[in-house]
Simulated scan of single mutants.
Amino acid sequence: MLDRKCLITGYLHQNLKEKRRFTVKLLRSFGMGKSSFESRIITEIDYFKSKLIQEATSSAGYDPKHIIENAVSNITCGILFGKRYEYDDPEFKRFLTILYTNLEHSSQAGALTFMPFMRFIPGSNWKRILKNVDIFLNEFIKFEFEEHANTLDVSKPRDFIDEFLKAQLELQSGDENVDAFDDESATHIVADLVLAGTETTATTLKWALLYLALNPEIQAKVHQELDSVTGRGQLPTLKDQPKLVYCEAVMMEVTRIRPAVPLGVVHGTTNDTIYEGYFIPKGTTVVPNIWAVLHDEITWPESEEFRPERFIDDKGTLIKYEELIPFSIGRRSCLGEQLARMEMYLFFTHLLHHFQFTLPTDELKPSTHPHVGATLTPRPYELIITKRT
């Protein structure tokens, strides 16, 4: 006879839609995608700017990679774990390094989907990926679950994990209407949220700073618009977003020219279908090619040229192309899209309000050719950070 845990696990694996719905509901309960979450993001941005101000005192180049990743991750960690991590925290830096190392080695993941035997080929990095996953799950995510379980007060859930634990207890008490998760599912879902809530936004911001440093005339236009809309003495808010047309165009162009995720999540057809004259049988693995959509020369002439103006019409109004799909589309689109867009806007406008980013004069210009892994990340680069007056 199957035990209760097996029954729960089997039930949950058959109800992925319910899992997604439950996860989105919890995220929204903690403010994800709501304007009320703006203050949380700005609080982290203030920590971030303080660190950059320290670096701005040096004339040497500075690689912003780690603090961008840490700052963005802290937004998600605040929702999930109820806390943030200092930028010099060695353990958190270690976990972020593990996360990004796996993304780098996961460029083979697509091939493994079609040819699983490749994991046994020397040099596939498969064992290292699995080892890193084990470290991340057991030493970071499961540790947080254990810490929360020891201090849980079901009447006052503090964060996302507390809500998970509360739901598990309700399910165990016999409430069949509660959509909770078994321990393994919960751990993997939270790990996925840490990854999704860190990588894409952080990578987009790294690309944004690089392209602005490479194109000072575009950066100057961003500074000019911010100064004219908000002034030097006032920080941008979400209410200013409709008026910051050029800033929005720049961010749209960043997500187009270097989408963080060039290939969408692997899908499978549920029925036989015909598309554009091609017969696709049920059970076919389908990989959405987001890169191809965002670099189609018909929609985006000279697609490798960084031109924010392509998103602004003759009247100065923002053009919203339905082909701009960096977060994918449909029912399987990124569930954190609203939060990511809010983060990107606030981080971008606050950073450009405070700083000017230039390249070291004694070094070669960094390449915009991406490093290809599970995501497209910029190759290492350094910036000169100057505080604006």
Rank of each mutant, 00 (worst) to 15 (best):
K5V: 14
T9P: 00
Y11V: 04
R20V: 07
T23W: 01
L26K: 08
G31I: 11
G33V: 05
I41F: 03
T43P: 00
F48E: 01
E55N: 07
Y62S: 09
Y62E: 07
T76W: 02
C77R: 02
I79C: 04
R84L: 00
E91K: 13
R94S: 01
R94L: 04
R94Q: 04
F95D: 02
I98N: 05
E104S: 10
F114V: 09
P116R: 09
F117W: 09
M118V: 10
M118D: 05
P122T: 02
G123K: 03
L130T: 14
D134R: 15
I135N: 10
I135W: 08
E139N: 15
I141E: 05
E144H: 15
F145N: 01
E146K: 15
E146R: 15
N150K: 15
L152N: 07
K166T: 08
Q168F: 09
L169G: 08
S173V: 02
V178N: 09
A180W: 06
D182Q: 11
T187F: 11
A191F: 13
D192F: 10
L193C: 03
L193T: 00
V194H: 01
L205G: 01
W207K: 07
W207H: 01
L209I: 12
L214I: 13
P216H: 02
I218Y: 03
A220S: 09
V222Q: 08
H223P: 01
H223A: 00
D227F: 03
S228K: 10
V229N: 07
R232F: 13
P236F: 01
K239R: 14
D240W: 00
Q241K: 15
L244C: 11
C247P: 07
V250P: 00
M251V: 02
T255K: 12
T255L: 14
R258D: 08
R258K: 15
P259A: 12
N271M: 06
T273K: 02
I274M: 04
Y275V: 06
E276R: 08
G277S: 05
I280F: 07
T284H: 09
V287N: 05
A292R: 09
E297A: 14
E304L: 14
P308G: 07
G316Y: 13
K320G: 04
E323C: 09
I325R: 02
I329D: 01
S333Y: 04
Q338N: 05
A340Y: 12
M344G: 03
M344A: 11
F347A: 03
F347D: 00
L352N: 13
L352H: 12
F357Y: 13
P360D: 06
T361F: 15
T361A: 15
D362C: 06
S367N: 11
T368H: 07
P370V: 00
H371F: 15
V372W: 08
